[in-house]
Design a protein around this nucleic acid. Sequence first.
DNA 1: CTAATAGTGTCTTTTAGACAATATTAA
DNA 2: TTAATATTGTCTAAAAGACACTATTAG
Lengths: 296, 296
Amino acid sequence: MNQETFLKQYDASKYEKPSVTVDMAVFTLGQYESGDIRKVDERVLRILLIKRGAHPFKDCWALPGGFVKIDESLDEAAYRELKEETNVDSGYLEQLYTFGTVDRDPRLRVISCAYLSLIDAEHIQVRADSDAADAKWFDVTYRLLEEHKSIKSSDKGPVSGYILERIYLLRLSHGSIDLDVRVKEVIDVEGHRVHKDIVVLDEGMLAFDHGKIIAQGIIRLRNKVEYEDIAFHLMPEKFTLTDLQKVYECILDRELLKANFRRKIMPMVIETNEIVENQGFRPSQLFRFNTGWNLI
Amino acid sequence: MNQETFLKQYDASKYEKPSVTVDMAVFTLGQYESGDIRKVDERVLRILLIKRGAHPFKDCWALPGGFVKIDESLDEAAYRELKEETNVDSGYLEQLYTFGTVDRDPRLRVISCAYLSLIDAEHIQVRADSDAADAKWFDVTYRLLEEHKSIKSSDKGPVSGYILERIYLLRLSHGSIDLDVRVKEVIDVEGHRVHKDIVVLDEGMLAFDHGKIIAQGIIRLRNKVEYEDIAFHLMPEKFTLTDLQKVYECILDRELLKANFRRKIMPMVIETNEIVENQGFRPSQLFRFNTGWNLI
DNA sequence: CTAATAGTGTCTTTTAGACAATATTAA
DNA sequence: TTAATATTGTCTAAAAGACACTATTAG
């Protein structure tokens, strides 16, 4: 039997199959005008959520996404969804993680491949989908609330294992809408055995396991921003170093020292000869991304 | 309409669904006795491959894996496959990446969630599966052959983009069987736009896109071993520091300086009071993993 | 002038890398 | 003894962190 004949007799419908979706964690940068001309504007990290117009989780907020078509790849599905929801086709996109617990969708078995996307605020033009009663950019913060350590000591003294639990507050807000979700990150170690997990303690108005996906996205973003140049995908063509620093700060949720930050990112940027004036304080120079800064 | 009634009328079979599999990149450590009692044994990284007994890719070598059942999670499927193939239930397991191009399986649309697993050589007991005519541990190396840079300069001078291509030789060998596969890692940058890809240039006797998965697994392993303690999952309970260093060296495919290596891993290990003697040279102390070394 | 931000200089600490020196064993 | 590996010490270079200083603007 050759491969040809095998293919003809293969029964593709023999087993019950899960459905496969992509879910998009699309981040961008928001801005709040300070009001005071002598002060610089505030910046926030934002994520796109849609209000579900249909069951299940009707009226809850969810990540945009949809079923993967039989004739498109995962990446193609992700690009298509990004385009459908935000009308941009120029964003950064990477696969985040695939979520596959059995009961994550009450309708039927759905495995979701989550993607992380970063788009620059200037290109945004959200388009509410047919499925979505409403699509909104939510301010996001993810902040440590509590930390619990319990150490499993063997009789001899040395540590045989430990459980590290960190409880974070994932806060998503848009106008008067406030979605507060507590997320527990658990690291359970027993000898060589490690088990890491993220557990959403209270789903609130978030649909499915999307709290977990968002948390995972922020964690990825925080890890990557430290040693890769992905933050520039959130920036416009030209930007001040203070703006760039604020992006790092709202991703990492901590303040950075100006001088050290500048030293670190200096190789990644090129100065333009443009400056920003009329701000009530010293004008600042505009920079742009130095494509190829990490070429040897 | 409430969620209850919605679920009843939802037609789960409305759309054609892809199949979902897990593929396992299971690594362990191999050893070649040097023959000379005055020399220490050689170590190699190994990966488990099965010889396909059925179409498609009959007689080619493939990663172990299988379809995800409708009532098990992705992680459960991965654990089950690991147990079925290696008979160990104690290994390290993490999700690697989900591969979802349309034509990666000639039979039908299959999306594969790949897992990376590390198991300690002492526990190995491979069990040839029903699907697998044969299962073998292959020595693995992944070594840079060529590097091409082409820089796209705009008229003004600064770099507008570049293409970086690195060609690696993925060599899988077991006895007289030698699977050599050239793998191209491409980084295509144009302004802000980045596109990374891994392309297998010649599949050889490797089934499906498993060359790509294996390469991805090795890349992940190399990245992680530098800043996490996963290498210990490949070690037995007690080990010498030289053995540990050799594990790092065969994962990274380069030699490390002994003194620096020891300084770096010292906080991760605890010395036992046992030593290894009768080796034809100075005896060495045995250490074990210091569970909890990274607790504050 | 002041309040705010822009931008620079320099010291210290930590980490990584290179390499030399000494120690111990079986044969 | 010797050839091999085991183990430690120290110098240098690079990166990260802290903090103080100067500069420039609108009002």
